[in-house]
Amino acid sequence: MSKAAKYSTMAILLIPIGIAINYVGGQIALILKLPVFIDVIGTILVGALAGPLFGAITGLVTNLILGITAPTWIPYAIVNVAIGIVAGLCAKKGWFKTVKGAFITSVLIWLITQLTANPVTVYLFGGVTGSGSSFITSFLIATGQSLWQSVITTALITETVDKFISVFIVFFIIKAIPARTLLKFPLAKHYLD
């Protein structure tokens, strides 16, 4: 088996795990009744370990598979894909290695989420997100704000903490993965000295 083939088999195998982590992370947040979604940890982790392409695939397949039972997830696939790409690119810059880098990554992932999710919410869903946060949006609309203003404000309230927590969880998890396992992934050289 060539080195490249071995790398890519490990990266391919990482994708289903990333998708399951996305789902289970969201479920644990629900069980613990936390006011955040935390449903993109897997995407960020796969992006950080295997690069933008694998991160993007994880994001895409996550939303398509969750769409089997909840089709309203499908249009948001674009957000999850964008997060995977950004996480992969930041990892290639070596930003998952330091706290400062992880902070920059959080800001970029937060930004790309705002840029991709809000247009989907406004144009396709008419401002509704399907979660409890729609109550915030409807309250803002009732106070006389425009749809865009209300959707963006809601997203700022609900997404900001969420994305920072997600990136830092991935940051700590990568720190906790033993070097001999980390070595098997395509981006290992960005974490090991």
Binding site: I21, V24, G25, I28, L32, I41, I169, F172
Partner: peptide, 9 residues
């Protein structure tokens, strides 16, 4: 949260 998810991952 972290002790619940970390070991799993």
């Amino acid at each position: 949260f972290f002790p619940s998810l970390g070991p799993l991952i």
